[in-house]
Amino acid sequence: MKKFIKQVFFFTLIFCCLFTCIILTTNIIVNNKADFKISKEKKYVLFGHSQPECAFNDSLISNFKNFSNAGETYFYTFQKIKQILPQNPQIETVFLEFTNNKISIWADKDIWSNKYMRLRYPRYASFMNLEDNLFLMTKNVKGYAKVLPISIKYNLIRMKLNDYFYINKIGGYKYLVRKKTDSILKTMNKTGFSIYPEYQKMSVHEIHYLEKIIQFCKEMNKKVYLVRSPYHKKSFYSQNEEALQLLKKQKFDTIKFLDFKDFPLDNSEYGDLDHLNHKGAKKFSKWFNTLLKKGLLDSINKQQIIDKKI
């Protein structure tokens, strides 16, 4: 029995050592070779989730790159931004989506749920520090154990294909075709508007990582703006508006907030209550481009200018 236990123990130990070595080696190789460079003209970058992903058509906005990605939380944006900013010194301004559902406790599941961790961890594993790894591990140890081997596989494939170019795989403008707003509103008229008390709670982790992002941008001498993409006034997510305003005041008062929530759009220009479709994105992006060109960022009363134009 002793011999058996000893053998199993040493077999497992050697395996764990080898596994750790492979993780570290592949992560170091990918980290060193990772290419996050974008075109030299791009001075403005935007990070966020599906709402800015569908709203900002960066082909219509000068010197602008949209890095938003559906379901992306600040935790993963932080990993991304740590690579993009140092590799692109031409970037002057960082826009960060700051909207109702991004700060809700509901966003937590997008950080460590099995589904989202499997989707994002392998992509960013090479750029995460120990603290971030421990954070994920403590939140979902089983899920974390499952994504580790996937991240090795992901890195090995990159190494085999000699493909370290990340830019086209980490987000961008999404051309949304659907027009479901009218049918959603019709259903809502029948079923009524649901209130979810749980949604009102704030995500401590998301706020913490937003602070870390802002801190990092400041260290890199970048201008930071919080933005809120347009969404329909009937959107269910707006029910934590008070909490959002309070948070903004308490924690991010020194950061300029550009609120485009009330940008006027028809129902046909929304894909649903939270996302603009390609028509809406075109209208909004052209307008935003004009605003940028007219020196929105250099003006003193930015929000007043926006509200006046809206």
Binding site: F15, L18, F19, N114, R118, K146, P149, I150, I152, K153, L156
Partner: peptide, 11 residues
């Protein structure tokens, strides 16, 4: 063992 780990994903 490595093949098992490498190809494991969702149970």
């Amino acid at each position: 063992v490595f093949l098992i780990f490498l190809f494991s994903g969702e149970e």
